[in-house]
Design a protein around this nucleic acid. Structure first.
Length: 491
RNA sequence: GUCCCCAUCGUCUAGUCCGGCCCAGGACUCCACCCUUUCAAGGUGGCGACACGGGUUCGAAUCCCGUUGGGGACACCA
């Protein structure tokens, strides 16, 4: 084998880290880990106009949240400009590139005119016809020039690790600019120069770079270098089969963090988008993913981002987590809602963990967990009743009397535990000659404000006697006013 | 317009390289039932696909050609 595997993820900080980029990063990372290689992070910040320090930070933050720490870097492409320029000049010296004195504005107009006419357009190589002497003379005169690669008439072929044998005739490839007339290097040159300098062995990137590949291979060859191996990943599409964009909802990985998804779940989900192990495994640990990952298992067709499945997977991770770790993860969410209390970190740690264990199988995200756990976290007795649930459960013969009896029994109950509460409620129901459900549903509504949720007795235990009684009092008040007005409407 | 890529349930996919084990398997979603104080979770079952047309072959989801459909790229952006 010819040396160790070295791969890189090379985002340009012209936007946040979106799920497509994250997936590319994950595949690179997985490939490196699988082969015991090196994962390099290179920030392609050569477009000063569109790049920003904040976006660099956002990308770094997104990667670190996903646990994608680079073995080398982050490197900044802009720092390598001198080498890029030197490489371009070397190409000029070796006659693989030539000076182009054409006016960029003029070329742009020609291109636009061709586009309006509905035809393609490539640079007509006017300056390639210039003699060496003429070119040197104009340059010496100080005339501005760009440096263009002289694209030979040939067929560029490579063995793509995802697509298999791939070949493109250079007939449609124009003599691309390597150096702009202001002396700055362009993308294709910089990428090749850096990948070469960083001794990258495998370029794993999105399908949108497929058409850049022959251009870059041409640059490698002109530089007298051996190109790396290439692997092009299918793109991730939105529900409408178009390229994923903001219109499709959350596309930044940090948005998923902020919506309450676990990094391991997103990582797992993204790893399975466009790749699968050769079996039916879905929920896989990082170690399992590393062991199973293989570029040969990458699909060739684009995949649609399915939020429902992510929700399911995240739910699986939530259910697999220990209540203690969930309780710890819940803190920032509770803080954001103003529901955090210091005692949750101390004396009531166990209580929080128990609440988390009740919410665990019922929520897909942390955000949902906090929303569903309102009855536990909210100190007040003023919970709003869900209208539909109230209409359904706050009715029937002498409901106030039943609740009154239940409240009295609860007030003097010795052991405030789920099992004891259940025994107590069932006894009251029997004494009053009604089915337990006649008490259970109104009680749940009174204590939680809704009709769905964890078992009532566990709920009551954790809500505590004080709040339970206060909330039942409020319910009684509601029932009394209803009776007073004849037929009041709940809610 | 030109070039390139892709094509299995609504979605993610297994199977395609090395045709038969596939009247196509798993998962998400949806539906039903079970469990059950509700909602989940869990269990059981169901709906649901080889884009189309030609070949090659004893035999094709798998190989070849074409059509259609979808996507991407064509900058002195990255």
């Amino acid at each position: 084998m010819s040396g160790d595997v070295r791969v890189r993820f090379a985002p340009s900080p012209t936007g946040f880290l979106h799920v497509g980029g994250a997936r590319t990063a994950i595949f690179n990372w997985l490939f490196a880990r699988h082969h015991g290689g090196v994962f390099i992070l290179r920030i392609e910040d050569t477009d000063a106009e569109r790049s920003s320090r904040e976006l660099v930070e956002a990308i770094l933050e997104g990667m670190s949240w996903l646990g994608l720490s680079p073995d080398e870097g982050p490197f900044f492409q802009s720092a390598n400009r001198d080498r890029h320029v030197a490489d371009a000049l070397a190409l000029l010296g070796s006659r693989n590139a030539y000076r182009c004195f054409c006016d960029p504005e003029q070329l742009r107009r020609e291109r636009e005119a061709a586009e309006r006419a509905g035809t393609g357009w490539v640079y007509p190589r006017r300056c390639l016809a210039l003699s060496r002497e003429e070119s040197d003379r104009r340059a010496a005169e100080g005339k501005p020039f760009a440096v263009r690669l002289h694209v030979p008439e040939t067929t560029v072929a490579w063995e793509d690790l995802v697509h298999g044998p791939t070949a493109v005739h250079t007939g449609q490839i124009e003599d691309l600019v390597l150096l702009r007339s202001d002396g700055t290097p362009t993308y294709n040159l910089s990428v090749v120069s850096d990948d070469l300098a960083m001794r990258v062995t495998h370029v794993i990137r999105g399908d949108d770079h497929l058409s850049n590949t022959p251009k870059q291979i041409l640059i490698y060859r002109a530089l007298g270098a051996e190109p790396p191996r290439f692997a092009h990943l299918p793109l991730i599409l939105g529900q409408d089969r178009r390229r994923l964009s903001k219109r499709h909802g959350a596309v930044s990985v940090l948005e998923y963090r902020d919506q309450g998804y676990l990094p391991d779940a997103l990582f797992n989900f993204l790893a399975l988008l466009g790749w699968s192990p050769n079996d039916d495994r879905e929920k896989m640990t990082r170690q399992e993913l590393i062991e199973a990952f293989d570029l040969a298992g990458v699909n060739r067709s684009p995949a649609i981002f399915d939020l429902k499945k992510l929700d399911w997977l995240n739910g699986q991770y939530l259910m697999a987590a220990t209540p203690e770790s969930l309780a710890a993860d819940l803190r920032p969410w509770l803080e954001a809602e103003g529901l955090w209390r210091e005692e949750y970190a101390e004396g009531r740690r166990g209580w929080l963990a128990r609440v988390a264990s009740l919410l665990q199988p019922r929520a897909k995200t942390f955000r949902e967990m906090v929303a569903r756990g309102r009855a536990f976290f909210d100190p007040s007795e003023e919970l709003a009743y869900e209208a539909e649930a109230a209409a359904k459960h706050l009715q029937g013969e002498d409901l106030a009397g039943h609740i009154e009896a239940l409240r009295a029994a609860f007030e003097t109950l010795g052991d405030w535990s789920a099992s004891s509460l259940e025994t107590c409620l069932r006894a009251v129901a029997e004494r009053r000659g009604v089915a337990p459900a006649r008490l259970i549903h109104p009680t749940r509504l009174g204590v939680t404000g809704g009709s769905a949720g964890p078992g009532l007795f566990e709920t009551l235990e954790l809500v505590g006697r004080q709040r339970t009684l206060a909330r039942l009092d409020r319910l009684l008040g509601r029932l009394a006013s209803r009776t007073a007005t004849g037929r009041g409407r709940p809610g």
